[in-house]
């Protein structure tokens, strides 16, 4: 396979020749080339054989009532209400390939929300912060009471008052 004509970019010339679709001028040039090019001559022979093999496959004749059935469908489709037409149009529509894409988008969105919970965490943290501040206030109030009690104790324990306390 050394001839450049047999490469993917140019092989259509050989295919066209085998299919009888190459114009006579170019066909003549190619024939002269194939007289000296074993590669292209082999390609022509193989392609012609494939072409003949494909000719063997002739489909069965179309049903005799094809037209009648088609007109029945056309009449039914024309008379059908809008929602039936919609269902019919969806039956062969190209929406199925969208399903994996939709699933992928939903998956990515779910992953994003799972990975970035900040938006949702603000709400539950607020009451927790409030409860902490309440307990802190109690603690502060108790500390103040303790300090006041300590002041009273200190005042009572002062040297001038010690005797009075002992008496």
């Amino acid at each position: 396979m050394n001839c450049p004509l047999r490469k993917e970019e140019t092989a259509h010339i050989l295919l066209d020749y085998s299919a009888g679709r190459l114009d006579s001028a170019r066909g003549a040039v190619l024939e002269r080339h194939m007289e000296n090019c074993a590669d292209c001559a082999a390609f022509r022979m193989e392609q012609a054989a494939v072409w003949n093999a494909l000719d063997v496959w002739q489909p069965a004749p179309v049903s005799l009532d094809f037209n009648r059935r088609l007109w029945q469908r056309i009449d039914a489709a024309e008379a059908a209400p809008w929602y039936t037409r919609l269902v019919e149009s969806l039956r062969f529509a190209q929406w199925k390939p969208v399903l994996p894409l939709t699933a992928a988008i939903l998956l990515i969105a779910a992953g994003f929300l799972f990975d970035h919970p900040g938006g949702r965490a603000v709400v539950p943290t607020a009451p927790a912060a409030t409860s902490v501040s309440v307990s802190e206030a109690d603690q502060v109030e108790q500390t103040l009471d303790d300090i006041q009690l300590l002041h009273q104790f200190n005042a009572a324990a002062a040297p001038g008052n010690a005797k009075a306390i002992s008496e």
């Binding site: 993917e8 970019e9 092989a11 259509h12 295919l15 022979m45 193989e46 392609q47 054989a49 494939v50 003949n52 093999a53 494909l54």
Partner: peptide
């Protein structure tokens, strides 16, 4: 399209090689 056809006919030539040989 030319690329598709090239590859398709190449595959067909390979798969139908024995028929091609018999026909030749």
């Amino acid at each position: 399209v030319k690329s598709l056809l090239f590859r398709a006919y190449e595959t067909l030539r390979a798969r139908l090689a024995h028929m091609v040989t018999a026909g030749a």
